[in-house]
Design a protein around this nucleic acid. Structure first.
Length: 600
RNA sequence: GGCGGCGUAGCUCAGCUGGUCAGAGCGGGGAUCUCAUAAGUCCCAGGUCGGAGGUUCGAGUCCUCCCGCCGCCA
């Protein structure tokens, strides 16, 4: 379809024009960063290199909600990781999808009052990095700085509120890797051996001859592999075959979804081979302790980012201190292509070092575009930067979290993207708020007549909303992000139906008792919107913030909400609402030379 | 070749453990309304549940074979 899409600037630049809002504070408390003085506010974004102590008043830390003051033990933190993305290239939509999903899960866990440690970062070692840098005429570290920054910039645009951004070139990471290496060595699981084989530089892997194409070309990169013989260090993975089998049998939830568990069990069953964990031919990386000629292989290095990320900059880095700051991880979120490393190699490494395994590894599916696999050679990649610039963060997040059943593959098409986002965010949610605030302004001077609890007395609608909220909570906890979205949107549908049934605009015209009933109805709908703003905030945080501020709340109040605030009754009589203003501008499609609008 | 997953309305998907033998969202058509972001509400069309057998009183759901797609392994 030839056409142009109008930029949804209102969705991305809302704050810059909102100074007329009487309740929106322009004061920015940049507690942690010197660089954050521009107006473009970031909800729950913090490139936090400085540890902040948990505090009730902290802008984003919710580990101590008021409800935890009754002598409850401090619970374990919820530690969530994305993969550490390889900096051979800027981020693509696949890694953005993983990170968006992780962010939604992290936000939900924070709403529950959990202390969350959300770890992401970049894997910056390896031959490909050195090669890519040389091709650009940069040093590897310069190259890493640029690409790593590109990741951070995209995460900022996508409202990713991570806690720890670890780069494998960080000095603390090296300390952790070396200490871990020594532990595994001391356990007798590293040995030296010759390794000869055909090596693909792009995969950074030795290949079995059988899997290569003619001229020994790698099937993925279509470039000839090089015969290499190296004297390397090996990790005794085969030694852990039985233990891994037992672990997966006894913990069937360790790998999810369940069909991925089957795959992993199949790999193990077919026999595990020791794998090389070092290279002599690669200089860009961490040297093997006591052997400066060998460099640690990227996976043995990178996976430890999940632990080194926990290390506090201020303290002397050591493995034990890092572990005690949040290990074991609660959830590793990964794409299915790296499942073997996370579900087989990593657990075995941890066993060897005598460390606890993470609680769960979740391997989600791939994204396709218009039903086809994405690939540079196909020329149909989906650039996350483009998507977020064109449609805004909320639309991108909402679409992928709603449309892809987590764990399965998912498809993107622009028509469907626009249809779904318009129908749900602009129409169901956005119009409901707009029409209600408009009525409130016209008939009640933008002020709530009664408490929402009083307004809903004897009203079954409140029960409907509470049931759907509970449904959403359960779905979030089960990582069913799509179903959670569905449940929250259903609240919006119920709200629109309620409005039509009660027709408060008609009641206002009648005056008297009818007008009072109408005023109560508006309070009911606005309380519903308040609940939606909380329940949907893990998915579309910026949109939800706009809803919350139009209901008369401040940024601090929004950042302090917990899931328990979805309980009916937050809005009180007398609260003044902001002026009605669309919270999500419809994405318009215009066809060339043709007026596509053909409506009544 | 072996193992596993999938194939349900134009699109994206529910329907798990057999029982009002088919639903939802998006899109489409119609009606209605005008508080509202040309939005809302209501109604409708649209299905050989990949195909063929079988088990059963009854199968989208269980079994067998076949076709197609995807993944892992060889």
């Amino acid at each position: 379809m030839a056409g142009r899409v109008q930029l949804s600037k209102p969705n991305t630049l809302w704050f810059l024009s909102s100074s007329s809002s009487p309740l929106y504070s322009l004061n920015f408390r940049g507690l942690h960063n010197h660089n954050n003085l521009n107006f473009k506010n970031r909800l729950h974004f913090r490139p936090n290199l400085v540890s902040s102590s948990p505090s009730r008043g902290a802008l984003y830390c919710t580990c101590r909600s008021p409800n935890l003051s009754n002598g409850e033990a401090i619970s374990d933190p919820f530690v969530l990781t994305t993969p550490l993305y390889y900096v051979n290239a800027p981020p693509h939509m696949g890694s953005a999808y993983t990170t968006i999903a992780a962010d939604a899960i992290a936000r939900f866990q924070r709403l529950l009052g959990k202390k969350v440690i959300f770890i992401t970062g970049t894997d910056e070692h390896g031959e490909k990095i050195a090669t890519a840098a040389a091709a650009c005429g940069s040093s590897p570290s310069e190259h890493c700085d640029v690409i790593s920054q590109a990741y951070k910039a995209l995460w900022e645009d996508l409202d990713i509120a991570y806690d720890k951004f670890i780069r494998t070139t960080a000095s603390k990471h090296e300390v952790i890797v070396k200490e871990f290496y020594s532990r595994v060595l001391a356990n007798g699981d590293i040995y030296r051996a010759d390794y000869e084989g055909l090596y693909c530089v792009n995969c950074e892997e030795y290949k079995d001859e059988k899997e290569l194409l003619e001229n020994n070309c790698c099937p993925m990169h279509l470039k000839p592999c090089v015969l290499r013989k190296e004297d390397n260090y090996f990790f005794a993975l085969s030694k852990y075959q039985k233990k891994l089998e037992d672990t997966l049998t006894q913990n069937p939830d360790f790998v999810q979804p369940s069909f991925r568990l089957n795959e992993v069990q199949g790999w193990i069953k077919s026999g595990l081979k020791d794998f090389s964990i070092s290279r002599t031919s690669v200089d860009w990386g961490i040297t093997v302790p006591n052997d400066v000629k060998q460099t640690i292989y990227v996976w043995f290095d990178a996976l430890l980012g999940y632990i080194s990320a926990l290390s506090d900059e201020k303290e002397q880095t050591n493995l034990q201190t890092a572990l005690s700051s949040g290990w074991p991880a609660s959830l590793h979120l990964i794409g299915k292509d790296i499942l073997r490393f996370h579900a087989v190699y990593w657990p075995a490494m941890l066993m060897s070092a005598g460390l606890t395994l993470p609680k769960m590894v979740f391997g989600h599916g791939f994204l396709t575009k218009d039903g086809m696999k994405m690939g540079k050679s196909l020329g149909n990649t989906l650039e996350p930067n483009d998507l977020v610039q064109r449609f805004g963060s909320d639309a991108v997040r909402y679409f992928f979290l709603r449309e892809v059943e987590f764990g399965n593959d998912g498809d993107y098409s622009e028509d469907r993207f626009i249809n779904i986002v318009n129908a749900h965010l602009a129409n169901t949610i956005g119009n409901l708020l707009n029409r209600t605030l408009g009525l409130l302004k016209k008939n009640c001077q933008s002020t709530l007549a009664v408490d929402s609890t009083i307004a809903a007395e004897g009203n079954a609608f409140k029960d409907t909303v509470e049931k759907l909220v509970e449904k959403a909570r359960v779905q979030y906890e089960n990582l069913s992000l799509s179903s959670a979205c569905e449940a929250v949107l259903e609240i919006g549908n119920a709200g629109n139906l309620y409005m039509d049934e009660h027709a408060p605009w008609s009641l206002f015209k009648q005056g008297g008792a009818a007008s009072e009933a109408a005023a109560k109805d508006l309070v009911i709908i606005l309380e519903t919107m308040r609940i939606i703003a909380i329940a949907l905030s893990p998915i579309a945080p910026r949109l939800c913030f706009r809803i919350y501020t139009q209901l008369g709340y401040s940024e601090d109040q929004f950042n302090a909400v917990t899931w328990s605030d979805t309980k009916w009754g937050g809005l009180k009589g007398g609260q003044i609402m902001a002026q009605p203003k669309p919270i999500f501008a419809r994405i318009e499609i215009q066809k060339e030379g043709e007026d596509a609008v053909k409506k009544k």
